[in-house]
Amino acid sequence: MRWTWVITVSLFFAPALALGCAVCGTGPERSRAAYISMTALLSLLPLTMLGALVWLFVRRLRRLEPKEGPPPREVVSEPSGP
């Protein structure tokens, strides 16, 4: 759990420290903010939309489920050996 926090915090701060992004070393603060915000948008938007679509389908599927419990079972008699 502690390592998860360390990795998460590192992912946020390490790119700037290591000059690991396109505008980390140069450019005004405004363009840096634009790059970071647009990267976040383009990364999170598809995940959000797909998540919303899956949530919508699951909700609709649950509504279609019969409310009276499990489906009726068919009892079949089979002959058994001696």
Binding site: L53, F57, R60, L61, L64, P71, P72, R73, E74, V75, V76, S77, E78, P79, S80, P82
Partner: peptide
Amino acid sequence: TTVTSTSAVRPEPRPKKKIAHSGVIGMLV
């Protein structure tokens, strides 16, 4: 030889459910 009968439970096939029309899903995608 005696033949006795035991009960085997076989679930009934579930009816197919359509959560949305294919045109609607296609347009959403």
